[in-house]
């Protein structure tokens, strides 16, 4: 067993640990938003460690760009999916205000829904809020 084997074993175990972190987070966290954190984020590091292990075992220069591209595509897509699910979750029944210590977005959306005022013309919140007004306040 060489040093490289040991290093890749560490990387593989670390990557697997990140999957475990995602699973524990999904089980333990109380609401959709926190679960989103647990489900998507640890994989950024997890996949990186897995790819490092693959690279260390294969040791071919030609493979390196493919591994890098695989990771970069993950980096490009994870925030988009997290944002879309998070945004949809905030605007539907899955919002749990009692779990938030501060909610700066709520007052902005409220102002738009109540007054019909447009804040700064054409912001994302201002545009999207009126259409989702009926589902905004399921908890009150």
């Amino acid at each position: 067993m060489s040093v490289i084997d040991i290093l890749s074993a560490i990387a593989l175990l670390g990557g697997a640990l990140m999957s475990l972190a995602a699973a524990v987070g999904l089980l333990r966290f109380p609401d959709l938003m926190s679960r989103m954190h647990a489900a998507t984020k640890p994989q950024v590091l997890g996949l990186f460690l897995m790819l490092v292990a693959v690279g260390l075992q294969m040791r071919q220069w030609a493979l390196l760009p493919a591994l890098l591209v695989a990771w970069l595509f993950q980096l490009l897509t994870v925030p988009v999916s997290a944002h879309m699910v998070g945004r949809a979750g905030y605007r539907s029944k899955h919002r749990r205000p009692e779990l938030l210590s501060t909610d700066d977005l709520h007052s902005v959306v409220e102002a738009v829904v109540d007054g019909g005022a447009v804040i700064d013309g054409g912001g994302g919140a201002a545009k999207a809020a009126p259409t989702s007004a009926p589902t905004m306040n399921p908890d009150h």
Binding site: G86, Y90, L105, I119, D120, G122, G123, G124, A126
Partner: peptide, 11 residues
Amino acid sequence: PGSLVVEVDRG
């Protein structure tokens, strides 16, 4: 990990 964008106000 630990932060995610919910909404963007481009203006």
